[in-house]
Computed example of a mutant assay.
Amino acid sequence: MKPLLLLPLLLTTSAAFAQTKTTAETEAVQQIIRRFFDGMRRGDSATVRATLAPGAVFHTLATKNGQTQLRPENPSEFVKAVGTPHPEVWDERITFEKVLIDANLASVWTPYQFYRGSTFSHCGYNSFQLVKLTEGWRIAHVIDTRRKEPCR
């Protein structure tokens, strides 16, 4: 009878541990994405580059003449553009809607609004895929939607 009483205690303890670990991993994943956008706002290409996994891939979904197009974007060109002086701050404002983690893979869904300085440019959703490497979480793939409206 005593082993039956011990089982609920063990299950509760391991569930609490898993939740703590998940919370720490979720925060680590979110922190890398925040660092990516903080670097973009500061025009700091080194910070942005440090958030990316080797071989990272960028895509955007665009609509042209009523047709949806999948457009690849070059991460190296993006990083270079971030570090090239531009008159307005590139300010992508995100919220974390969903973070899913399994082992060394994370998937993150973030609605956003993008501003050039104080002027609204566009909005949409980002979908990030991150991998946990020796140095920590890194962005492996970003795909986003872009539109003027409707925004959240």
Rank of each mutant, 00 (worst) to 15 (best):
W90N: 14
F17M: 10
V48W: 06
T22D: 12
K64Y: 08
T23R: 12
P111W: 02
E135H: 12
A24H: 08
A81W: 13
T22H: 15
G83T: 13
R146P: 12
V57Q: 14
I32T: 15
R116L: 10
E25V: 06
L100W: 05
G124N: 08
V99Y: 00
R42K: 14
G43S: 06
T51G: 03
A46I: 06
R152C: 00
P111Q: 03
T20L: 13
F17T: 02
L70C: 00
T63L: 06
F128Q: 09
L61K: 13
L61M: 15
S118E: 10
R147L: 02
T51A: 09
P3I: 01
T22F: 14
I139D: 05
V99K: 06
L7K: 04
R41D: 04
D91C: 05
V82A: 05
V48F: 04
N126F: 09
Q31M: 02
M1E: 03
Q67E: 15
D44Y: 02
I32D: 01
V82D: 00
V79T: 08
C151H: 07
Y125E: 04
P72A: 14
L10H: 07
L5D: 10
L11N: 03
P54V: 09
T13E: 08
V57L: 14
E135P: 08
I139C: 04
V79M: 06
K2N: 07
T95P: 03
R42W: 01
R49M: 09
T20D: 14
D102S: 13
L52W: 10
I33P: 05
N126C: 01
F96W: 06
P85Q: 10
L10R: 09
N65P: 00
T68W: 11
H122Y: 02
I143F: 11
C123N: 11
V108N: 09
T23K: 12
Q31K: 12
T119G: 02
E149Q: 11
D38E: 12
I139P: 07
L11I: 04
F128H: 09
V108Y: 10
E27Y: 05
L4D: 04
T51E: 07
A81L: 09
S118W: 00
I33K: 08
V48L: 07
C123A: 06
S127D: 05
T95L: 01
